[in-house]
Design a protein around this nucleic acid. Structure first.
Length: 249
DNA sequence: AATGTACTCAACCGCGTAAAA
DNA sequence: TTTTTACGCGGTTGAGTACAT
């Protein structure tokens, strides 16, 4: 696995971009479009490494980038998406037109992580404190049972028609109140999709839920384990699946 | 006004991986 | 099949700025 040489090693310009550099990069992009970053710096007359050029363009100079504060609607969406996806900033950014992964990551780290830290939700559910109420424990167990039930149904119907099923890659669900919300969301999504028996595609998505780590789910301390290693899907499937998760809240 | 502290965000770094050689 | 290249991602850094003392 090779690695592009660091710009400091080949004597290229570093640090903040000047207006002149921006101008050169914008002009080049207007003529040639994105891609071929390796040659961009040379052809545009910039003494910058490809990474730096790409980053400057993607996070700052691109014409479709939205400027200004994050709206309450956007903030709400970020919070919900983060609950579902974790720190997968590029995926989150993909659902916020005009916003970059870097911007959302910064916004999360400087605003939302602190904002959410002491929220009432945590206290009510007792999931971060390590002390769960009886009601919480009951909810977790009920949710766990329901998920397992759904998985059994799904397993029995796995790929009955030979339809292509997208093989996922692992996604970690970390210990957090968001994690506990995941359990509910995934469960609800499974129920909704399971209900669409007439739709073979839906069943594929449900299948992707069938990879929960059973032992973890049965663990009383649900929040400390991977809630699931449900898998990333083919892009189209993933987007549709995400819709279900979001709408199930 | 001077200094210290906290915050923001553009930019950098290192890693993983798909594609090309 | 193996190695190299190029790209994209998430974590981290640090300069600039705002605010508090």
């Amino acid at each position: 696995m090779g690695r592009a040489p660091c710009c400091s090693k080949v004597g290229l310009q570093r640090g903040a971009w000047t207006p002149r550099e921006d101008e050169l990069l914008i002009k080049y992009m207007q003529c040639h479009g994105e891609g071929q970053w390796k040659s961009v710096s040379q052809k545009a007359g910039l003494l910058r490494c490809p990474k730096s050029c790409r980053l400057r363009w993607m996070n700052y100079l691109r014409p479709d980038i939205k400027r200004g504060n994050i709206s309450p609607e956007e903030e709400d969406l970020i919070i919900r998406l983060h609950a579902l996806l974790g720190n997968r900033w590029s995926l989150i950014a993909g659902r916020l037109p005009g916003r970059t992964d870097n911007e959302i990551k910064n916004y999360w780290n400087s605003h939302l992580s602190k904002k959410l830290k002491g929220q009432e939700f945590t206290k009510q559910n007792g999931l971060l404190s390590g002390r769960k109420t009886d009601q919480t424990k009951t909810t977790i167990k009920r949710t766990t049972r329901q998920i397992k039930k759904n998985i059994d149904v799904v397993k029995g119907m796995e790929d009955p028609t030979g339809t292509k099923i997208y093989v996922p890659k692992p996604t970690r669900f970390i210990r957090s109140h968001e994690g506990s919300r995941n359990s509910v969301n995934i469960n609800e999504a499974a129920l909704k999709l399971k209900g669409s028996k007439s739709n073979n595609n839906s069943m594929q998505y449900v299948n992707t839920l069938g990879v929960f780590q059973d032992d973890d789910l049965l663990d009383d301390d649900l929040g400390t384990n991977d809630l699931a290693s449900f898998h990333d899907l083919h892009e189209k499937s993933f987007q549709e699946y995400l819709e279900v998760l979001l709408n199930s809240e």
